[in-house]
Amino acid sequence: MSTAVSDREVHWQRTRNLMIVHLVIWFIFAYVVHWFAQDLNKITFLDFPLGFYMAAQGSLIVFVVQLFFFSKQQEKIDRECGMAEDE
């Protein structure tokens, strides 16, 4: 029983860390880059001013890719800690 409890603790620890990592990335692309849009516009990316690009497309792509990664990473944590669902 004690191993089960510690397994749960490890699982939750790792789950929480994963959540924090993803929310940091989210925070950067949701808020930080747009705060500096005017400066980023001096850079040209794929012919776009970068500040415009990040709001119209860049951040969105990061969010989509990030969620597929998150899903895979969390599945790995569940599996390794023996907390995954039965198939």
């Binding site: 989210w26 692309f29 969105l60």
Partner: peptide, 19 residues
């Protein structure tokens, strides 16, 4: 550009939903 806040906000919210 200011209106693009809707584009960013209405997609990024799903990161919160998932995590």
């Amino acid at each position: 550009h200011p209106y693009l806040a809707f584009v960013v906000g209405w997609t990024g919210g799903y990161v919160l939903v998932a995590t």
